[in-house]
Amino acid sequence: MMTVTAINSLNPNTVTNNINFTAESKNSATKPAANTKAASAKKHKKTSKALETTIDLATFGAAGALGIMGYKGKWLQKGIKWLSDTKFMNKKVFPNYEIDNAKFMSLIGVTSIVLKDGLGCYLYVKQSLNNDKIPEDKRKFVAALDLANGGLMVAMQLLTFFTISSKKVQTKLFNSLFGEHFTRSAKKALKFKLKQNSELTNISGKEFYKAREKDLRGLIGAFGYLTSLAASAIIAKRVIVPFIATPLADKTKAWMCRNDKPAQTHKDTKNTYDTSKPAAQNLHN
């Protein structure tokens, strides 16, 4: 009995293994026909697994063949060229990019965030919920965390997109910190200094101002990258989002489990969460 208990604990997908085993042992003692049924199910499982592997191999093979054909036929290049010739690119994207239309850029940015993070969130949640390899007692939390993370990520990305990562805010921030180096007097001083260099004595005002403007644009760009990295990519997306998403995932999981019976958590799990009552009840409390 104990041996079987130990072996049973090897099954990665048997979360409530103690309870399951007890039920199974009773069944095996009273209904021997069940063994034949189990053997048949095992055989069927083996066959379907082989079929699955064959399908997977065929899919990979087909994908590989398509990849080689595409590479030889330059499908990717043709696809990109086709995209650049579309009416949408020529009538919408190019004219707006030419004038650096802030509204259009924002629209593209927001669409990109919502589409990428939204679709990513949907796929992650769906796949986590249907992933038998994730232990059952953790699966819903993993999915709930994906959902909370995804939703918050979209919200946070939009928030930072319109605040700290926006060109306007970054330019203002840069000017308030380093604006004194780019005033008219500062530029004139710099030009005066450059003219002292024998190679640059004949530098024209236009040449200088053009170069300084380019330098400024580059600096604002790099500064914007740094502030975005610090504020958005690190603080907002990696600190604030997981910090809020984790407790939110508790609620989401409880909502997902609102119709579930009380579940037995694995015996090794450090339990800090009361599972004796239905989860929905915990949510209301």
């Binding site: 997981p242 998403a245 407790p247 995932a249």
Partner: peptide
């Protein structure tokens, strides 16, 4: 750099989150 943030910072705020009531194992797993 982005991946470093995801890989090192985010897990800390999930595992050691004082606001969460989910058990530690599940949080660590996630």
């Amino acid at each position: 750099l982005n991946a470093l943030g995801t890989g090192f910072l985010a897990p800390l705020f999930i595992k050691y989150n004082p606001l969460s009531h989910t058990d530690e194992d599940t949080r660590t797993y996630s």
